[in-house]
Measured scan of single mutants.
Amino acid sequence: MDTYKLILNGKTLKGETTTEAVDAATAEKVFKHAANEHGVHGHWTYDPETKTFTVTE
Results as ranks from 00 to 15, higher is better:
K11S: 10
E49V: 11
E57I: 08
E20Q: 14
E49M: 12
V30T: 10
G42F: 04
F31W: 01
Y4N: 03
E49K: 10
A35K: 01
A27T: 00
V30L: 12
D2F: 13
L6K: 01
T19S: 04
G39P: 02
N36M: 14
E16F: 14
H41R: 12
H43M: 13
E20A: 08
A34W: 15
G42Q: 02
E16D: 05
F53L: 01
A24T: 06
G15W: 15
Y46W: 03
Y4V: 02
F31E: 00
G42P: 01
G10K: 04
A34C: 15
K32A: 07
D23K: 02
E28G: 05
N36P: 02
M1H: 09
E28L: 15
H33K: 15
A24L: 09
T17M: 15
A34N: 07
D23M: 03
T52H: 03
A34E: 09
T12Q: 11
V30I: 15
D2Q: 14
T19G: 03
K14E: 05
T26P: 01
T12C: 15
T26D: 09
N9A: 08
E28H: 09
T19L: 13
T19I: 15
K29G: 08
E16A: 09
D23F: 02
L8S: 03
E28F: 15
K5Y: 14
D23Q: 02
E28T: 03
L8Y: 13
P48T: 07
K11D: 09
D23P: 00
V30C: 07
Y46T: 00
N36I: 13
E20G: 04
I7H: 04
E16C: 15
V22R: 13
P48Y: 06
W44H: 01
T19R: 04
T52W: 02
L13T: 11
K32T: 05
A25C: 13
N36G: 10
G10E: 03
E20H: 09
H43V: 14
T54D: 03
V40M: 07
H38M: 15
L13V: 14
A35C: 07
H43C: 13
E49A: 12
I7P: 00
V30R: 09
P48V: 08
E37R: 11
D2L: 10
P48N: 07
F53C: 01
N9L: 14
G10T: 14
A21F: 04
T26G: 10
E37C: 13
